[in-house]
Simulated scan of single mutants.
Amino acid sequence: MTTHQLGRGPVSPADSTEIASTATDHAGRRRPGGGDGWLFLSEALRTFRLTGAVAPSGVELVNALTVPATSRPERPISVLEVGAGTGVVTRRLVRVLRAGDRLHVVEPNPRFAQRLRTDEELARRGADLDLRLSTCRVQDLPGCGPPAAGEGGRDGDRSVAAAAERYDVIVSGLPFTNFDPVEVRRILDLYLRLLVPGGELTYFGYLGTSAARLLTSGPRQSARHRAVVRLLRGFEEEYGLGSRVAWRNVPPARAHLLRSPGTGEPGAGRTGTTAASADSPAGGVAASAR
């Protein structure tokens, strides 16, 4: 498990080779996200339980998932992205976040994590946003440890800071319906602990998966799937602000927006801030997510 500070230091020759092989067109020009479709498909076929899709999320779904980062208070915010894959949501986040904001990306798949480390856009924006990448499961935070030797970090207390860190926004790309209900419950409880009071969470699920699971996996897996769906529906009833269907996504998906209990006063959080209260600029995102 490693933590990598993006946007700090030169790209190594090995990294440059990977950039050239995965993200250029026939004329040798850089293609944003080039090669990601094949990488995503190969990893989906190899580790479908953890990947949960065969293609990166489309623009419509990405925009729905990043609503809390665009409808935000006029102050620095801290964002956690879990399950970044090849980085389609990550690249959207670095475009809408501002200098002084923080973005912590958690991606357990080493091949996806390497793709993120060699992404030129993420590296370019990394220093302004204090962007870092942890190659581990979110359940293992803050145990991902300090940055590896030579990987940066502005001080020697990165692991100590991570232990106390909480977030204004969490964007989750985890395929919950591939997991056991107990595991999903633990992750959802962890998200609530990681969010500041009034912090916001987005995640998504594909439409029609219950019927597909019954047809392809049999009664036992179908029952597990239904149990996870019931758990998620209960979580959404308690904390949900709204949802939006991305019909043009492949396959169509529903993005959910939720808020952690309580409201905060300015000055609480890891960097001296909390998520906005219900009557603040960030509190109006429910309408745009429905």
Rank of each mutant, 00 (worst) to 15 (best):
R102N: 09
R102C: 11
R102M: 10
R102P: 09
R102V: 15
L103N: 11
L103Y: 13
V105L: 10
V105E: 06
V105F: 07
V105I: 14
V106S: 07
V106D: 01
E107W: 10
E107V: 10
P108M: 05
P108A: 13
P108R: 11
N109R: 07
P110A: 08
P110H: 07
P110D: 03
P110N: 05
P110F: 05
P110V: 01
R111E: 15
R111C: 06
R111W: 10
R111S: 12
F112N: 06
A113K: 11
A113L: 05
A113I: 13
A113Y: 08
A113M: 09
Q114D: 12
R115E: 00
R115W: 03
R115F: 10
R115P: 04
L116N: 12
L116A: 09
L116T: 05
R117D: 04
R117M: 07
R117A: 13
T118M: 04
T118F: 03
T118E: 04
T118N: 12
D119V: 09
D119A: 06
D119W: 04
E120H: 11
E120G: 10
E121T: 10
L122C: 08
L122S: 06
A123I: 03
A123T: 14
A123R: 15
A123E: 12
A123S: 14
R124I: 00
R124N: 08
R124E: 13
R124W: 02
R125L: 04
R125F: 04
R125H: 13
R125C: 09
G126R: 02
G126Y: 01
G126K: 02
G126C: 08
A127K: 14
A127F: 06
D128M: 04
D128C: 03
L129M: 06
L129D: 03
D130K: 13
D130A: 14
L131C: 14
L131D: 06
L133C: 04
L133G: 05
L133S: 06
L133A: 03
L133I: 05
L133Q: 04
L133T: 08
L133H: 10
S134I: 01
S134T: 15
S134G: 10
T135F: 01
T135V: 15
C136W: 00
C136M: 05
C136N: 02
R137G: 11
R137V: 01
R137N: 11
R137H: 10
R137L: 05
R137E: 00
R137K: 11
V138K: 00
V138I: 14
V138Q: 02
V138N: 00
V138M: 02
Q139F: 02
Q139Y: 02
Q139T: 15
Q139E: 15
D140V: 04
D140A: 15
L141S: 06
L141K: 09
L141R: 13
L141Y: 03
P142S: 00
P142K: 01
P142L: 01
G143Q: 14
G143A: 14
G143F: 09
G143E: 06
G143S: 12
G143D: 14
C144S: 08
C144R: 05
C144D: 04
C144F: 04
G145F: 00
G145E: 06
G145M: 05
G145V: 03
P146N: 01
P147N: 08
P147D: 02
P147K: 07
P147H: 10
A148F: 02
A148I: 02
